[in-house]
């Protein structure tokens, strides 16, 4: 294990073909944002050749060598709550070199935005290379009724009306800390504790795709049919996972989700038009 100059980052090995860049060990929006920022930067450097030709600062040379290294042997990036796993081919990439490159990159990412006029242009270029934030995705949800069989229980449990539960659930923007468990399943953070409700004692064997649920202080939705113990308060017609689409996933790790209450009519309309926004 080596520790970079940045005391809050640790490089850990998970076998000879993976380095885990660990930013912390808590569920924390700032820690998580650093994970996704590094992931986005690396992904950009891997997929956009022009990102390597950015001129105007001292680090161009490093990018060039970085991108050569990366294209030769980086297999996959997996951001999670608090760390970024970088899978690589150990016959192409040396761990030490990779860790040095990432350390360098982290220092550059953490540089404050340029202020001067000349740098403004460089700043926009920089924003392209190092995009600051994920996108916000609106998820329309038909709450209650047959789509949300547990909405009444959540209202009863929390001492709120069903309308209040929906209002609170749709009033916040949730961070997609990571995706996992099922393809496209978002681990969302930031739910209002007033609507926190424990899981079902006996999980259901079948929860339809699109179901929106609450489990403790967590909320989320099922991208595909699955067994599960979450309290289901509504359903979205949006297809968050479509394996046959060119873009199989609606959400990226690091994005934000905003739920919006819709009626049954609109639900059917979106469903019939293919379930993509």
């Amino acid at each position: 294990m080596s520790v970079s100059e940045n005391p809050s980052v640790r490089f850990l090995a998970m076998g000879e073909a993976c380095v885990v860049v660990e930013f912390g060990n808590t569920i924390d929006p700032e820690v998580n944002e650093r994970v996704h920022r590094l992931a986005r930067c690396l992904q950009n450097l891997l997929s956009r050749p022009e990102a390597t030709t950015y001129q105007g600062t001292f680090y161009r040379q490093e990018y060039r060598s970085w991108s050569e290294v990366a294209r030769a042997g980086i297999r996959e990036l997996v951001p999670t709550y608090r760390s970024l796993a970088v899978y690589f081919d150990p016959l192409e990439v040396k761990r030490q070199a990779l860790e040095a490159q990432i350390t360098q990159l982290l220092q550059e990412i953490d540089v404050p935005e340029p202020a001067g006029a000349l740098e403004a242009e460089a700043g926009s270029q920089r924003e392209k290379t190092f995009p600051r934030q994920g996108k916000t995705v609106i998820i329309p949800v038909c709450y209650g009724g047959e789509y949300g069989p547990d909405l009444a229980f959540v209202a009863q449990h929390t001492g709120l009306s069903e309308e209040e539960v929906v209002k609170i659930h749709t009033s916040r923007t949730y961070r997609v800390y990571m995706l996992g468990f099922l393809p496209g399943f978002p681990y969302l953070g930031g739910m209002d504790e007033r609507i926190a409700t424990p899981r079902l004692e006996t999980p259901r064997t079948r929860i339809p795709a699109g179901s929106v649920g609450i489990a403790g202080t967590q909320t989320g939705f099922y991208p595909m049919e699955s067994p599960g113990g979450w309290r289901i308060i509504g359903r979205t017609p949006i297809k968050a996972f479509d394996p046959f689409s060119d873009t199989p996933f609606l959400l990226f790790p690091g994005d934000f989700v905003q739920f919006k209450s819709i009626g049954e009519g609109e639900y059917r309309k979106i469903e019939e038009s293919g379930g993509r926004p």
Partner: peptide, 11 residues
């Protein structure tokens, strides 16, 4: 237990 992070084949 830990705050979830990545799993590799062989882990």
């Amino acid at each position: 237990d830990i705050v979830s992070d990545a799993l590799a084949k062989g882990a």
